[in-house]
Design a protein around this nucleic acid. Structure first.
Length: 750
DNA sequence: GCGTAACCTGTTTTT
DNA sequence: CAGGTTACGC
């Protein structure tokens, strides 16, 4: 057991005390993951526990995979038999095997947030309610909140408090929407994210024999990131561990940042009350950061009232002070960060991988990206729009989903007229009415359409039904890759994308090919026994943007939200946008609890840094298309001044405004390109400034432009032809295109 | 049914 | 700003 030698005393305790309930409070950077992996390795190696009897719940699929790999390094391939994954993926798996007990088929669909929202939208419309009052987002939040607290629609309707609440909010129908929503999900053989947990609770509540089966199987239960579990998740673990009481939770109340998703910090604060003989272990030594960073972080978190007592310290060197960067605008902030990264790289021989830029909201990445690109610093963005959330991918997946489960209403609505086959909204409405009148499913109506409606669209529907039936036959015979290739081709989706020769059309086509590659990989992977399309869909439903980690080994600066940064560390960290209303977010200013959660988020951001930390804010920022003046965040005052210095003041002069700065076509750009032009041409001088936004109409025939930038990329050369209408444009990444330019703006880069 | 243009509106984080 | 929705002409 030589691995125990490298652990400090509390860490060792956390590893070897495997029996009975245990809570490990692990301060930031205290080697939590190490303890957890060693504990599991210890169980397998020294206590001879079969990996099959260990349940380890993590926060992301990626964390599970990493931990499994590390355990495999210690105990070997045996580790593959561990039950390790997110709450959602583990219990989705269990629900599939036990589905019949809840009246679900085992091939049930998992609705993502978009599916849920559009279903709610349909329901609100069908109930004849005002969708301005019952906004899908708000309604879903309400339903989700209820499910996370294990409140069924029956209880919701019965509870006078909710009723009064909803009535005073002028939304008395919320309970009825909840009821209809649950009913429709059930009829669609679908579960949303919250149902995966809610229904697991129902399963264990109503089927003691099933609960007992899993209690026997999971002799050891471990929960990582315990501070971010909600009540529903907590009760599941509590039930499973009820017999053997071998439950170990690991977390840090100071890093609880998911209350908006139902996470309840009380789970960790009250854990002691549930287990009388609880062993509490505190990991307080930080191995990650300099003293300055640890102390600064402590000075911030101590402003919070709700917390467990602990004393995080480090024996690392003192390190540099935190630097505060101040910029005049968001673009200036980007420049400051980019040039700081450039300098740091030079002075300290660092690689791009040593840097991370963290922000509160995804939209903040734009200015940073632009600045990094200009300085030719490679970067990667983690999070944001996931590959699987792209429209073209969701379209294909909707086909696949529907072929597997014909009850899947949301998938059907998505594909029934895609590509266009003459089945418009009016026809779909008729279908819905017919299904409702005869108490049939939409698919029943569609596959026997002749009995319900006639006319032109009936023909199109028959063709659609025939096609789906053919796809079904294919999937039964073939593996996931062959089946999905067949469907992509024969649905007409692939052809439609192929025929779209615009730059985005091209990338959409490539994305679909990419999806097919992923399915191929799934089929080829020997770890996957079931190679059917159904098995693939089951896996894909719970993939999130963090899990798409093919960017892992490239040398690039990491850009992400602070939420995504949980559990990661970097030598140098920049926290940008330290402005009041942005961070803390204006939505979180209403209650003390919310403000404290924002402060914990700030704490998480600070503690990601190993060596150097920069905080920055801008005095002006574009938000919702408007330029706003900003004030420094109140959180800056929470940092003890001893640990911070104001280092760089922006030297910048004017605010520089850019248009068409995104990659990809912007709507305004497309509109401007489309317009016919009759503008007089004028000569312009080659600009000497850093860059100037320039009107295309100022460009004259025969003029050449170099190093300019358009809506969709960097221009290497541009020849203006004819009276200002056409230009041959050579793009860095997209080759040559002939475009109508008219009113479009471009930026001339220096 | 479909395509277009004008209008409207959200404005946090994500399993 | 950008994405979604609606009204309208074909």
């Amino acid at each position: 057991m030589d691995y125990l030698e490298h652990l400090n005393e509390p860490q060792r305790e956390g590893v070897i005390n495997t029996e009975g309930p245990c809570m490990i409070i692990a301060g930031a950077g205290s080697g939590k993951t190490r303890v957890l992996t060693m504990r599991i390795a210890h169980l397998i190696q020294s206590k001879n526990v079969d990996p099959f009897n260990i349940l380890a719940l993590t926060f992301t699929n990626k964390a599970a995979k990493e931990m499994r790999d590390r355990i495999e390094g210690v105990v070997g391939t045996e580790a593959r038999n561990l039950w390790m994954g997110t709450f959602h993926s583990i219990f989705a798996r269990i629900l599939r095997t036990e589905a019949d007990k809840l009246g679900y088929p085992s091939n049930f669909t998992i609705y993502d947030t978009d599916d849920s929202k559009s279903l709610i939208k349909n329901i609100v419309k069908e109930m004849g309610l005002d969708d301005k009052v019952y906004k899908p987002n708000g309604v879903l939040n309400r339903i989700s909140g209820a499910k996370n607290r294990l409140i069924s629609w029956q209880e919701y309707l019965r509870n006078p408090i909710y009723k009064a609440d909803d009535e005073s909010a002028m939304k008395p129908e919320l309970g009825n929407i909840y009821r209809t929503y649950v009913d429709r999900c059930f009829k669609a053989s679908a579960m949303d994210f919250d149902d995966l947990l809610f229904n697991t609770n129902v399963l264990f509540r109503d089927h003691p024999d099933t609960l007992n089966k899993y209690q026997q199987r999971f002799q050891y239960v471990l929960v990582d990131e315990f501070q971010d579990t909600n009540i529903s998740q907590y009760l599941i673990t509590k039930k499973i561990a009820a017999v053997r009481q071998n439950i170990c939770v690991v977390g840090d109340d100071a890093q609880s940042i998911y209350a908006f998703r139902g996470a309840d910090i009380q789970n960790i604060l009250n854990f002691e009350k549930d287990y009388a003989d609880l062993r509490i272990i505190k990991l307080e030594q930080n191995y990650r950061s300099t003293q300055n960073i640890v102390n600064a972080a402590n000075s911030v978190i101590n402003k919070n009232r709700a917390q467990l007592k602990k004393n995080v310290w480090t024996s690392n060197d003192i390190g540099d002070q935190i630097e505060l960067l101040k910029a005049t605008s968001d673009n200036e902030e980007g420049k400051l960060v980019a040039s700081s990264i450039f300098e740091e790289k030079m002075h300290h021989q660092l690689t791009n991988n040593d840097f991370a830029v963290l922000y509160r909201t995804n939209s903040q990445s734009r200015a940073i990206e632009e600045a990094l690109r200009r300085m030719s610093i490679k970067y990667k963005i983690i999070g944001g729009l996931s590959f699987y959330q792209r429209k073209e991918i969701k379209d294909i997946l909707a086909y696949l989903r529907f072929v597997i489960n014909q009850n899947d209403e949301q998938a059907l609505r998505r594909i029934i007229n895609l590509p266009k086959r003459g089945i418009g909204t009016a026809t779909v409405d008729k279908l819905v009415v017919a299904a409702y009148d005869h108490e049939l499913s939409l698919w029943d109506v569609i596959s026997n359409i002749g009995q319900f409606i006639g006319g032109r669209s009936a023909n199109a529907i028959t063709q659609f039904a025939t096609m789906i039936k053919a796809f079904k036959v294919e999937t039964e015979r073939k593996d996931a890759f062959e089946a999905s290739s067949y469907i992509a081709k024969n649905s007409g989706l692939l052809r439609e994308l192929y025929e779209d020769k615009t730059i985005e059309g091209l990338s959409r086509y490539e994305n679909v090919q990419e999806l097919l590659n992923a399915i191929k990989e799934f089929v080829v992977n020997p770890e996957n026994e079931d190679k059917s399309l159904g098995a693939f869909l089951q896996e894909v439903a719970l993939i999130t943007s963090v899990d798409e980690s093919d960017k892992d080994n490239m040398d690039a600066v990491t850009l992400m939200t602070i939420h995504m940064a949980k559990g990661l560390e970097f030598k140098n960290v920049y926290v940008v946008g330290m402005e009041e209303d942005l961070f803390p977010s204006q939505m979180m200013l209403s209650s003390r609890a919310d403000l404290e959660e924002e402060r914990r988020l700030f704490y998480v951001a600070i503690t990601r840094a190993k060596r150097r930390l920069y905080l920055s804010y801008a005095l002006n920022r574009y938000r919702f298309g408007r330029l706003k003046t900003c004030e420094p965040s109140r959180f800056l005052e929470d940092v003890d001044p001893e640990y911070i210095k104001v280092n760089k003041l922006s030297r910048s002069r004017d605010l520089q405004v850019s248009t068409n700065s995104n990659l990809g076509y912007t709507k305004n750009f497309i509109n401007s390109v489309k317009q016919p032009v009759n503008q007089p041409t004028r000569k312009i001088h080659r600009p000497s400034a850093d860059f100037v936004p320039s009107d295309i109409s100022k460009l004259a025939e025969g003029m050449k432009v170099e190093h300019a930038k358009f809506g969709f990329g960097v221009v290497t050369r541009m020849d203006i032809q004819g009276a200002n209408k056409k230009a041959k444009v050579n793009f860095e990444n997209h080759g040559e295109k002939t475009l109508l330019l008219s009113f479009a703006k471009l930026k001339i880069l220096s």
